[in-house]
Computed example of a mutant assay.
Amino acid sequence: MRICFIMYPWDRVDPQTDSTIRLIHECVKREHTVAITTPNNLTIRDSVAQVYADVFTKGAKLSNSMVSFYKNAVFKRCQLPLSGFDVIFMRSNPPLDMLALNFLDSVDSGTFIMNDLNGLRIANNKLYTSSFDDEENRFIPVTHASKNREYLERVLKDSPQDKMILKPLNGYGGEGVIVVEKKASSNFRSLLDFYIGDKNKTGNYVILQEYVEGAEKGDVRILMLNGEPIGAMKRVPAENDLRSNVHAGGRVEKHILSKEEKELCKLIGPKLVQDGLYFVGIDVINGKLIEVNVQSPGGISRINKLNGVKLQKKVIDFLETIVTSRKIAIERRKLFTKVIDDVNS
């Protein structure tokens, strides 16, 4: 298998906790041809989509230690046609570079891209959760999004709850997530001015969302592969902090999916696959879906450690199955077309 990881710069990888390096290591371990690059290295040459990439040199002794693997990795710099890869694995961090996706559109039909480009386009922000069918809001919190200050003030005023969650539409990693209380509504306009920005310019969209009880106790990160949950962990926020993200000071605990969480996964799984979102991380609080992370969902290393598993094996198994199935389909088509061509030969 020939696989290209379009990711964040290699020098920003933390080998002790990074998920992408575990996926890369598994591919190298299986002796696949592995290239890594960043969105900035995508290019067009003679009308062909190409990429400047670093290809892992084969033959060197492979360490099972991620730190050692990272430290001793040897690359060969190449300019390569994107359509020559069997798989392109999108692992760049938010925000999504929409222009970079345009370089990949020409190879989308022949190369398996995870996650799918159109899926990334429609699901790269926090509004994607509203696209799931849940009229009674059993699994999806009531969500409002706008840049109209008057409307958002009215939403807070009319809310049956004493508090709501305010966050930027395109934030990630817990950035900018705060609790807004009705009793402090006099300060809400100032907050909106800060989040939305200059009144004389276009401004930024913000989300005002139902406060899910239990948020102060943390959330659950569930990794989904091909519409099914493959692992989970509980993320507990630091003291006096709403955000459960580990890099924001939270900690992780072992977690077994509840009945409600399993039902949630069953509800959203088919649509994720339909949208080409084969590998995602979902954040859940008290059985309700808060976010769907589609670009570079993390958690593999921590879930592995908590449960004594290697989730990267399942992910690469899935990719190998896809590539093998595609190759079989191509060979079958060649065989059948030859039969037809031989009729008049």
Score class of each variant (00 low, 15 high):
residue 2 R to P: 01
residue 8 Y to A: 09
residue 22 R to L: 08
residue 22 R to H: 09
residue 23 L to Y: 04
residue 26 E to K: 12
residue 26 E to R: 11
residue 28 V to D: 08
residue 29 K to C: 11
residue 30 R to Y: 08
residue 30 R to M: 13
residue 33 T to V: 05
residue 39 P to E: 03
residue 43 T to S: 15
residue 47 S to H: 15
residue 49 A to I: 03
residue 49 A to L: 08
residue 52 Y to L: 10
residue 55 V to P: 02
residue 57 T to S: 13
residue 58 K to T: 12
residue 60 A to C: 06
residue 65 S to L: 09
residue 66 M to D: 12
residue 67 V to H: 08
residue 73 A to L: 06
residue 77 R to A: 10
residue 85 F to C: 02
residue 86 D to V: 06
residue 96 L to V: 02
residue 99 L to K: 09
residue 106 S to P: 07
residue 107 V to E: 08
residue 108 D to L: 12
residue 112 F to V: 15
residue 114 M to Q: 14
residue 115 N to I: 04
residue 116 D to R: 05
residue 116 D to P: 05
residue 117 L to F: 04
residue 118 N to P: 02
residue 119 G to A: 05
residue 121 R to C: 12
residue 122 I to W: 02
residue 126 K to I: 01
residue 135 E to D: 14
residue 136 E to V: 13
residue 137 N to Y: 14
residue 139 F to P: 00
residue 141 P to A: 06
residue 145 A to I: 09
residue 146 S to P: 11
residue 155 V to S: 02
residue 155 V to Y: 09
residue 156 L to K: 10
residue 160 P to C: 15
residue 165 I to Y: 00
residue 168 P to N: 12
residue 171 G to L: 11
residue 179 V to N: 07
residue 179 V to Y: 07
residue 179 V to E: 11
residue 180 V to C: 06
residue 181 E to P: 02
residue 183 K to P: 00
residue 186 S to Q: 14
residue 186 S to P: 02
residue 187 N to P: 10
residue 194 F to P: 03
residue 194 F to R: 11
residue 196 I to Q: 03
residue 202 T to D: 15
residue 205 Y to T: 06
residue 206 V to H: 11
residue 213 E to K: 11
residue 214 G to F: 08
residue 216 E to H: 07
residue 220 V to P: 01
residue 222 I to V: 15
residue 229 P to Q: 10
residue 232 A to T: 05
residue 233 M to E: 09
residue 240 N to C: 08
residue 246 V to L: 14
residue 253 E to G: 04
residue 254 K to A: 11
residue 271 K to H: 07
residue 271 K to R: 13
residue 279 F to D: 01
residue 282 I to F: 10
residue 292 V to D: 03
residue 294 V to G: 00
residue 294 V to P: 01
residue 303 I to Q: 07
residue 304 N to A: 13
residue 310 K to S: 14
residue 330 I to R: 13
residue 336 F to W: 10
residue 337 T to K: 12
